[in-house]
Computed example of a mutant assay.
Amino acid sequence: MYHYGRRSQRGGWMTFVLPTVTEKSDGSPRHVGLEFEFAGMDINEAAAAVCEVFGGTPCEDGTFVCRVENTAYGNFSVELDSSLLRSKGYISLLRDIGIDLDASQEKRIERFLLDVAEELVPYEVVAPPIPMTELDSMDDLREALHRRKAKGTRASILYAFGLQFNIEPPDLSVATLTNFLKAFLLCYPWLREAADIDVSRVLSPFIDKFPSGYTRLVTDPEYMPADIKFLIDSYLDSNSTRNRPLDCLPLFAHLDRDRVMSRAREKHLIKPRPAFHYRLPNCLIDDPNWRIADEWALWTEVDELSRRPDTLAAMAEDFQNTPGFPFDLFTSSWKEKVPVWLGRA
């Protein structure tokens, strides 16, 4: 791995560790999209933070969504993170019980719902995919949101807020995708501890761990699906939900939409895209010492390990021989072993 860094707006160095491979197999840059969840400000304030860093023009799209258009990277979205509100699903619910709203009534209902939802439902800034080598701009956005008093994961026991990365793999071959899954599952016990996941997120369903049976299947040194269809089917057998720390449903829907949509639970939440959806990190945006670069550095360990098939095989064999595997009975020995396998010790 190598480092890419520059002087941050706060002073000091803001350095992102990057994996060895930052380009896809066709020579184009690998991209990463980010999603920040937070409270403490309204949509317009959050859109202003995006404009401060990336330029662009804010464009309101109703009460619950504001786009920032024409930035250097494309369009950002700032939205209340509730599909029921964004899609105005509550209107259908009211109509079902015989209540039809005129425009003014609908607006009043929206303001009421917004006031209530702001206490429990996070706002979210959704960034378009940007080149992996330009991730430093995301910490500039973190800084702009921090200055506007955004509240993060630990501001309330109710705030199970996360920072999410949408990461393009170097290619979409079955071997590459399988090795990413192997690497993640092997690193997960250490990764979760290193990321210091807040109790509010542990207790929420959003990052439920992979089932033990699936972990056993994929970390078998001999596991290598013959084709993408088998990889997707074996994933869906145990993981028909998006609530995983590494959500693969958007990626798999990009590859075979019908296969995924026929079995997935939260179909309305799946946006097909050629990227892994890494959901594990906290979003500690109100902590002046928190950096996206630190969360990203943990992911790069998975990224690098995925390209070391011999190490993967040996590590998987060791993992499956760990006392208590795979039924949540791990001693601290495995978490201590992972950094050794990664060459960090």
Rank of each mutant, 00 (worst) to 15 (best):
84 L>K: 05
57 T>A: 07
267 K>V: 15
108 R>C: 06
171 D>P: 12
150 A>C: 06
189 P>Q: 07
181 L>R: 11
135 L>E: 00
54 F>H: 04
324 G>F: 08
227 D>C: 05
337 K>P: 15
263 R>V: 14
60 E>K: 15
235 Y>D: 06
81 D>I: 11
11 G>I: 03
10 R>D: 13
116 V>I: 12
149 K>V: 08
261 M>C: 00
234 S>A: 12
217 L>G: 01
233 D>Q: 13
212 S>A: 15
252 F>S: 07
130 I>D: 00
93 L>V: 12
243 N>K: 10
177 L>G: 09
86 R>L: 06
91 I>L: 14
31 H>Y: 06
292 I>W: 00
134 E>W: 07
56 G>I: 05
7 R>Y: 02
219 T>H: 02
320 Q>R: 15
165 F>M: 13
128 P>W: 04
287 D>M: 04
64 F>L: 05
116 V>L: 05
243 N>S: 13
216 R>H: 12
31 H>I: 11
10 R>I: 11
231 L>Q: 08
196 D>N: 10
271 K>P: 08
53 V>Q: 03
94 L>A: 04
151 K>S: 07
220 D>C: 01
135 L>V: 08
183 A>N: 09
103 A>V: 07
326 P>N: 14
143 E>A: 07
250 P>S: 00
142 R>L: 00
87 S>L: 09
173 S>G: 15
21 V>M: 08
73 Y>T: 08
21 V>T: 09
241 T>P: 04
55 G>T: 04
132 M>D: 02
5 G>T: 02
174 V>H: 07
81 D>Q: 14
123 Y>A: 09
106 E>I: 00
8 S>N: 03
99 I>P: 06
5 G>N: 07
95 R>M: 14
225 P>G: 11
279 R>L: 06
77 S>W: 07
219 T>N: 00
166 N>T: 11
23 E>M: 10
210 F>H: 14
98 G>M: 02
116 V>D: 06
7 R>L: 13
22 T>K: 08
344 R>I: 14
35 E>W: 09
111 R>E: 11
96 D>E: 15
303 D>Q: 06
144 A>K: 02
328 D>F: 14
3 H>S: 02
332 S>K: 15
61 D>A: 14
195 A>K: 09
219 T>Q: 03
13 W>T: 03
239 N>W: 02
74 G>W: 03
162 G>S: 13
256 D>P: 01
307 R>K: 10
307 R>W: 09
87 S>D: 15
225 P>I: 10
259 R>E: 09
167 I>K: 02
265 R>I: 15
52 E>Q: 12
16 F>P: 00
